[in-house]
């Protein structure tokens, strides 16, 4: 009895500890990412970006966060109150749980699940339910249109996202992220699976609702899409969720394709972070370069381009692996 009691206590404490660390990291990271995004976009657009609060405007995001926290939370009169309240949490929470499986180094991972990144993808899908009910409960036409687009987009892009990783799974022979990263000690998967990498980045962008796939919130068409009616901290949660999702996608991408913690001189976690931020930079760079796709074109891209190419990639990988075994 005492043993299980201890075990439960132990587990609870671990969860709280990890939870606190993750939430802290997520908040600080999101602040940094927002600042980085502003700076990167500003440099691309011949601007300076935030300058005045802190060094190079580094504290600007904190000022904005304080502003958002202090703002009034508006309830639209016709909204479905409970669901309206639930939606931002539903968007944000699943993204947080994805941190469980990111391997910072060989042994430094919260839970090394054997279903690996499938777990993340299935969890992040819950946040789409959050987006959908956010648009639905707002009882606003723009928000509804945005959420409708979000659902369609999500369904289409799950497939190429998973298909693009299947080649790696086949090569590494495991779904466990630690195994996949450990497999890359000789060469990174980006060398052998470059088309898959491109498909992964594209699909991850779409999953994270980032431009050029930001059609659920397309600000020039749908005002703000699914979060049109949200204000204050609720809006900030959507924002936080989006940035964390980018970070998670990039971290998984770095683990899958860029060899995770592998790298000379520096310790593993630093390498992972560096690679993740490199991917985040690419994501931002893409955002500030291209115009937005239309929703039907988005579907066409998924079904007519990404999925066939991903399938083809799996086929080629399978053949190669088979012959490799045959020859050896």
């Amino acid at each position: 009895m005492t043993l299980t009691g201890n075990f439960i206590l132990d587990q609870t404490l671990t969860i709280i500890l990890y939870g606190t660390i993750v939430v802290l990291f997520v908040s600080v990271n999101a602040l940094f990412l927002v600042w980085a995004e502003r700076k990167i976009s500003a440099r691309i657009q011949l601007r300076q970006g935030p300058l005045h609060v802190g060094f190079q405007g580094a504290l600007q995001t904190i000022a904005d966060a304080i502003k958002l926290i202090s703002k009034e939370l508006i309830w639209p009169r016709e909204s479905d109150k409970f669901v309206f309240w639930l939606a931002p949490i539903l968007v944000f929470a699943p993204v947080l749980s994805a941190f469980i499986i990111i391997p910072l180094s060989q042994h430094f991972v919260i839970r090394d699940l054997n279903v690996g990144f499938l777990f993340v993808f299935s969890l992040t899908n819950i946040s789409f339910i959050g987006i959908f009910i956010a648009g639905w409960s707002s009882n606003s036409k723009y928000a509804l249109l945005g959420s409708m687009r979000a659902v369609a987009q999500n369904i289409s892009y799950e497939i190429p996202l998973l298909l693009s990783t299947m080649g790696i799974v086949m090569a590494a022979g495991s779904l466990r992220l630690t195994d996949i990263v450990a497999y890359q000690n000789k060469y990174w998967f980006i060398c052998t699976q470059f088309p898959a990498f491109l498909i992964f980045i594209t699909a991850a962008l779409a999953e994270a609702n980032r431009a050029p796939f930001d059609i659920p919130e397309a600000e020039s068409e749908l005002v703000a899409g699914f979060h049109t009616e949200y204000s204050g901290m609720r809006f900030a949660l959507f924002f936080l969720g989006e940035y964390t999702a980018i970070f998670i996608s990039s971290a998984i991408g770095a683990s899958l394709f860029l060899g995770g913690w592998h790298g000379p001189f520096l310790p593993g976690p630093v390498w992972l972070l560096l690679k993740t931020y490199l991917l985040v930079f690419i994501v931002m760079w893409i955002r500030w370069t291209f115009p937005r796709l239309r929703s039907d074109q988005l579907m066409a891209l998924a079904w007519k381009v990404l999925i066939p190419f991903a399938m083809f990639n799996i086929l080629v990988t399978a053949i190669l692996i088979y012959y490799q075994k045959f020859f050896i």
């Binding site: 990167i40 500003a42 440099r43 691309i44 657009q45 011949l46 601007r47 300076q48 760079w285």
Partner: peptide, 11 residues
């Protein structure tokens, strides 16, 4: 866009 990122800001 990358090329412009290394230009001098006009602000």
């Amino acid at each position: 866009t990358l090329r412009y990122a290394f230009k001098k800001p006009v602000t």
